[in-house]
Simulated assay, not measured.
Amino acid sequence: MATPHQTRPDDLTMEVVDLIGSVVARYHEEFEEAAAGHALTGAQAKLLTLLSLGELPMRRLAQKLKCEPSNVTGIVDRLEARGLVERRPDPADRRVKVAAVTAEGRTVARGLRESLRFAREPLAALGDEERLALRDLLRRMVESDPA
């Protein structure tokens, strides 16, 4: 007897996966364009966006960005030189440094999000109930991910 992971996905599932892939590809393309519009690399923009949600220890940033801590140090150095982020001692452990977004960095991060047209325009065509249903379905997908 085959387990769910061993069976071949049905056509509907494959179509949904392909559509999600198209949305992700379009998001990344526009995100890179938005980053360049703010004179940022994609990695700098991703880090700034993460920090706009809350300060994080450098090691945790590296985990979230799936890169080496030394790479994060370089990215933070460049963003710090532009006044977009700052390093602070972690209140829970003063030996640990956290990176935090500055007021200017928060403004740039907001500008990055607001410049992503691809989702805003199609989503505007959906009613409130449809957007709520889509949000709830996406949350369920994200929350069920073991990673």
Rank of each mutant, 00 (worst) to 15 (best):
A2W: 03
A2K: 10
P4I: 08
R8G: 01
P9W: 00
P9R: 00
D11A: 13
E15T: 12
E15I: 10
V16N: 12
V17K: 08
D18N: 11
D18I: 10
L19A: 15
L19G: 05
V23Y: 12
V24D: 13
A25D: 14
R26L: 14
R26H: 11
Y27R: 13
Y27H: 14
H28I: 10
E29W: 08
E29S: 09
E30V: 08
F31W: 15
E32P: 05
A35W: 00
A35L: 00
G37Y: 02
T41M: 01
A43I: 11
Q44P: 03
L47K: 00
L47V: 14
T49L: 09
L50H: 06
S52P: 01
S52A: 09
S52R: 04
E55N: 10
L56F: 04
P57H: 06
P57W: 06
M58K: 10
M58A: 12
L61F: 12
L61Q: 08
A62R: 14
K64H: 14
E68T: 10
E68K: 15
P69Q: 09
V72E: 06
T73Q: 15
G74T: 14
G74Y: 09
V76Y: 01
V85K: 00
R87W: 06
R87D: 07
P91L: 01
A92N: 13
A92Y: 08
R94V: 13
V98L: 09
A99E: 07
A100Q: 15
T102Q: 05
T102P: 05
T102A: 04
A103G: 10
E104H: 04
E104Y: 04
E104G: 04
G105P: 03
G105H: 05
G105W: 03
R106E: 10
T107W: 02
V108L: 06
V108P: 04
A109W: 04
R110H: 12
R110V: 05
E114A: 11
S115K: 02
S115G: 11
S115L: 05
A119N: 13
R120A: 15
P122N: 07
A124L: 14
G127E: 03
D128T: 05
R131Q: 09
L134R: 00
R135Y: 15
D136L: 03
R139C: 07
R139G: 02
R140M: 06
R140H: 10
M141V: 05
M141H: 08
E143H: 03
